[in-house]
């Protein structure tokens, strides 16, 4: 596990909720730019994601980290109005039609946001039209689909077919408890992820190779 130099980033990584809020307030009061504070929060969050990947952290730590981030952002948000927030690219994500499970998807959303992506979260029970509309609007080069139930596999396959039929050149990544290589091939997705940190790794790969051509909205 890496030790972070910045005190705030380190407090996030160690899940010290009270210290995080205290530091955010002190830094704001001392005139530090809100975006610089967000940067430190994201550093901490990235470290949490890495600890999850290496097996030092678990979902409980991710959920706690997400809650600390939410509380910190609630303090920061009023100061961020008008600030030009940079992001690494846009990703559309949702749980496929027929399926209402979103625990896993929400964790992926949290880690992707923490890693600096603009995530367009369509929620649960999402039909093909909504995926297509969001992809056209955002020009996102990557769409993530979450599924827990084998009963929704056919639906996922159809959604992917419709996205391709709409002429959208996007990479499709799928995730969910039972998803594996065979499921990926069956539904004709490009990638599958076993857990949330895999999803971030794949996104990083896609956005690194696509840099330059990726549209930043």
């Amino acid at each position: 596990m890496a030790t972070l130099i910045d005190e705030l980033a380190s407090a996030i990584a160690e899940l010290e909720d009270e210290k995080v809020l205290e530091l955010v307030t002190t830094r704001l009061d001392s005139g530090i730019a809100p975006l610089a504070i967000v940067d430190n929060l994201q550093q901490g969050m990235t470290e949490v994601g890495m600890r999850f990947e290496s097996g030092d952290y678990f979902l409980s730590e991710l959920v706690m980290c997400g809650e600390i981030m939410k509380d910190a952002m609630a303090v920061l948000e009023p100061h961020l109005a008008g600030a030009d927030q940079q992001h690494r690219g846009s990703i559309v994500i949702g749980t496929v039609k027929g399926d209402v499970h979103d625990l896993g998807k929400n964790i992926v959303v949290m880690l992707l946001k923490g890693a600096g992506y603009n995530v367009i979260d369509l929620g649960i029970d999402v039909p093909a039209e909504k995926f297509i509309e969001a992809l056209k609007e955002s020009q996102a080069p990557l769409v993530g689909m979450s599924v827990l139930l084998t009963a929704c596999q056919e639906g996922m396959k159809e959604i992917i077919e419709e996205i391709r039929a709409a002429g959208l050149k996007v990479a499709v990544i799928i995730g969910g408890n039972y998803v594996d290589e065979a499921v990926k091939n069956y539904v004709k997705a490009d990638y599958f992820a076993h857990n949330a940190s895999d999803a971030v790794k794949i996104a990083d790969e896609i956005f690194t190779t696509a840099r330059g051509s990726a549209h930043s909205a």
Binding site: S60, M64, E67, L103
Partner: peptide
């Protein structure tokens, strides 16, 4: 799920 995970800490 989220509530009980936060309870572990809080």
């Amino acid at each position: 799920t989220k509530g009980i995970m936060l309870d572990i800490y809080r």
